[in-house]
Simulated assay, not measured.
Amino acid sequence: MNKDKVLSIRNLSISFQTSAGEVNAIRGVNLDLYQGETLAIVGESGSGKSVTVKAIMGILSGNGKVKSGTIDFTSRKSGEEIKEELLSFSKKEMRRRINGRRIAMVFQDPMTSLNPTMPIGSQIMEGMRYHYKTSKKEAYEKAVKLLDLVGITEPEKRMKSYPHQLSGGMRQRVVIAIALSCDPEILICDEPTTALDVTIQAKILELIKDIQKKTGISVIYITHDLGVVAKVADYVAVMYAGKVVEKGLSEEIFYDPRHPYTWGLLSAMPDLDTNDEVLYTIPGSPFNLLNKTEGDAFAERNRFALNIDYRLEPPMFEVTETHYAATWLLHENAPAVSMPEALKERIKRMGEEVHSLGGE
């Protein structure tokens, strides 16, 4: 890839001390984010998606501890290249130098992000006034422009509105406007459309894509909805039990998945064209991260598991220069196992549908 790298996570491991014992929530995560691209991190609840991005933002809860790893952020905002190791900053330094200013986050529920006692205009202006000491007049004018950018009609009139006077979709647009107010280089979206209905979801996704085209911002998307991923992502990382088990370009993950867990996630997507009467589910329960892992954490739920899966954790095998998967099925001595026939059919249909719509 010739694009500039803006974020590089290497060997990140995070644990949480709980009353039940130590939870190893993140176990050696490696990820890269490039200029102007969208990285989607997908997986079931509890796979470590949100903990990974909270580490980037420096907002881990008090019982969280980074055991190893680095998070390198390369800023080019000032015209020169500045490299910073985010894990070396204190929470206070993160708030002053990074959060909102260079890396901004849009959370799942807009009502938890907005102050119910302040007009939305003041909330959009707050970051600019704090980080850049922008004058009140300039901040006001930029806030109106941002409301217009995120598709809120009569933006000047809406500046005086309180969060409870807006619909869920409008509140989420306001949260995005706040996130963009200081021109960050990275926008992290943690399931930003989960609480919204389907038509509003589509509009919010289009909005973020549109803003990305206009500003060149890099985006990290956290989601368990593979339908969302198909619409927005350039690159996809699939997480399971605190590890990245497969990563690749969006089309590689959708059209040539190699990890049995990714097969399961794709098979579990609702499909109107299937003849199956029952929706596919991945058997068993997610791995309990209180337990020590011997071998592959997915082995107990994997009907394609080999004997070695119960003894040794698989390394990342290279499929292409951009596509990697952590499964022993890719070892040269492994038996030939391919994805389930039903999934092959589904992928074929997806490809034909994209082609008929004039896609690639």
Rank of each mutant, 00 (worst) to 15 (best):
residue 169 G to V: 03
residue 306 L to A: 07
residue 234 D to A: 07
residue 30 N to H: 03
residue 10 R to C: 04
residue 121 G to S: 14
residue 247 K to M: 13
residue 169 G to N: 04
residue 272 L to W: 14
residue 185 E to D: 14
residue 34 Y to E: 04
residue 116 P to K: 05
residue 105 M to V: 10
residue 217 I to C: 06
residue 147 L to P: 13
residue 265 L to P: 00
residue 6 V to I: 13
residue 195 A to Y: 07
residue 146 L to A: 13
residue 234 D to R: 09
residue 127 G to E: 06
residue 273 D to M: 11
residue 255 Y to W: 06
residue 182 C to R: 14
residue 169 G to I: 03
residue 10 R to T: 04
residue 324 Y to T: 10
residue 201 Q to R: 07
residue 244 V to N: 00
residue 8 S to W: 05
residue 225 D to Q: 04
residue 53 V to I: 13
residue 222 I to T: 15
residue 292 K to C: 08
residue 350 M to W: 10
residue 200 I to S: 03
residue 1 M to D: 07
residue 309 D to P: 00
residue 69 G to D: 02
residue 7 L to F: 10
residue 143 A to I: 06
residue 14 I to P: 10
residue 110 P to T: 05
residue 337 V to I: 12
residue 95 R to A: 15
residue 141 E to W: 03
residue 320 T to D: 09
residue 217 I to D: 12
residue 296 D to T: 05
residue 303 R to Y: 07
residue 256 D to C: 08
residue 137 K to T: 07
residue 210 D to A: 01
residue 221 Y to V: 14
residue 287 F to D: 02
residue 156 E to R: 14
residue 213 K to S: 15
residue 137 K to V: 10
residue 125 M to N: 12
residue 239 M to D: 02
residue 18 T to G: 13
residue 234 D to C: 04
residue 121 G to Q: 02
residue 297 A to T: 04
residue 195 A to E: 07
residue 332 E to D: 15
residue 317 F to A: 09
residue 142 K to W: 04
residue 105 M to F: 12
residue 4 D to M: 13
residue 206 E to L: 05
residue 335 P to W: 15
residue 156 E to D: 11
residue 16 F to T: 05
residue 308 I to A: 00
residue 249 L to R: 15
residue 344 K to R: 07
residue 327 T to E: 05
residue 127 G to R: 06
residue 242 G to D: 01
residue 137 K to R: 04
residue 125 M to P: 05
residue 3 K to V: 08
residue 39 L to H: 03
residue 212 Q to D: 10
residue 192 P to T: 08
residue 214 K to D: 10
residue 304 F to G: 04
residue 280 Y to R: 11
residue 293 T to C: 10
residue 60 L to R: 00
residue 205 L to W: 05
residue 158 R to W: 01
residue 267 S to C: 06
residue 262 T to R: 02
residue 151 G to K: 02
residue 245 V to P: 01
residue 1 M to W: 09
residue 14 I to Y: 13
residue 126 E to I: 07
residue 197 D to Y: 14
residue 315 P to D: 11
residue 274 T to S: 11
residue 122 S to E: 14
residue 135 S to W: 01
residue 36 G to V: 00
residue 32 D to Q: 00
residue 283 P to Y: 15
residue 155 P to K: 06
residue 350 M to Q: 09
residue 14 I to M: 13
residue 100 G to E: 11
residue 218 S to N: 08
residue 61 S to M: 12
residue 141 E to R: 12
residue 212 Q to W: 13
residue 292 K to M: 06
residue 215 T to S: 09
residue 124 I to L: 11
residue 20 A to L: 15
residue 274 T to N: 10
